[in-house]
């Protein structure tokens, strides 16, 4: 064995000060560790890995921030199933561009075997989906499908390769979007005294006696929220999967959002015209759980 010849002497082993001074550079008196070249190879690989990871973390953070700003602007909209107003469109342009820049910047880092490696992109992906699904809903009163959303993300990174949108991130982003629908619905009710509805003819003005909001043919934000809630609740994901645990965390918040809109509508129906103009229902009541982001 090659190392047998250069065993350290026993007296040297006493030298406890060496304990804190283990850097190879300092041990000039002793032969180098025979494993150094092997570890140099590892160092190069790990450095590359850490660099990739840090780039992804940074991109994810920037995508999250830009998506939040987009959502914020979208919350100034009071209509449903109409083109995004120009002022919102203009305000958001730069943030969509930021998102595209960030996805393009990291697409090279998440190719091939690394497609699922850097999970830190999850935060950015979910926030992006939240913005995308919310805008899509405001424009078309529809939930954008996973396949379509996936395609959007693919397009964003396309210059240097596709960026993967996992099903988990899509679903969790949709969960978060319910909070935005709640905010949108409640603000609209406070401002105009009615639930936003895409249907021009049958504005769902709540009245004490006549039509209830559950009239089967009329759709509004609340019926949509309930439909979305039912779909999300129906998803069967075992708790033993990470995805299942993540859903579990978001489920309560989502249910709360739906109930807040229901409570607000109740108030509107019961009190009706007694309500002072611009009065906002109390949003925080009765929610023992974590608040919706940004609220």
């Amino acid at each position: 064995m090659s190392r047998a010849g250069n065993k350290r002497s026993a007296t040297e082993a006493f030298d406890k000060s060496k304990m804190d001074n283990r850097n190879v550079k300092d041990d000039t008196s002793k032969p180098q560790s025979p494993f150094l070249s092997m570890f140099e190879g590892f160092r190069a690989e790990l450095d590359e890995h850490h660099d990739r990871r840090e780039r992804v973390i940074k991109a994810s953070r920037d995508i999250t921030a830009a998506s939040k700003k987009i959502i914020f602007s979208l919350q100034r909209i009071r209509t449903l199933k109409k083109q995004i107003p120009l002022f919102v469109h203009k305000a958001n342009q730069q943030y969509w561009e930021t998102i595209e820049t960030q996805y393009t910047a990291i697409s090279r880092d998440v190719q091939g075997i690394n497609a699922y490696r850097y999970r830190s992109i999850t935060g950015g992906n979910q926030e992006f989906i939240e913005a995308l699904t919310f805008q899509h809903y405001l424009e078309q009163q529809q939930l954008i499908s996973y396949e379509e959303a996936k395609l959007r993300v693919v397009k964003l990174g396309s210059e240097r390769g596709e960026v993967m949108l996992t099903m988990d991130d899509y679903v969790l982003g949709v969960f978060d979007m319910t909070g935005e629908l709640m905010r949108f619905a409640i603000t609209a009710m406070a401002m105009s005294g009615q639930l936003p509805s895409g249907d021009e003819e049958s504005e769902s003005i709540p009245q004490r006696s006549s039509k209830m909001d559950t009239a089967p043919q009329s759709r509004n934000v609340l019926t949509d929220l309930r439909e979305l809630r039912a779909s999300l609740e129906k998803l069967d994901v075992p708790y033993s999967m990470n995805f299942g645990r993540d859903i579990g965390k978001k489920m309560g918040v989502m249910r709360n959002s739906v109930e807040k809109v229901e409570n607000a509508l109740y108030g509107l129906v019961v009190r009706g015209s007694e309500r002072p103009k611009g009065w906002m229902p109390e949003l925080t009541q009765g929610s023992g759980r974590e608040e919706i982001e940004g609220y």
Partner: peptide
């Protein structure tokens, strides 16, 4: 010690 020396060059 040799292995430790190896680990100590990793970032």
């Amino acid at each position: 010690k040799d292995v430790h020396a190896g680990f100590s060059i990793l970032n």
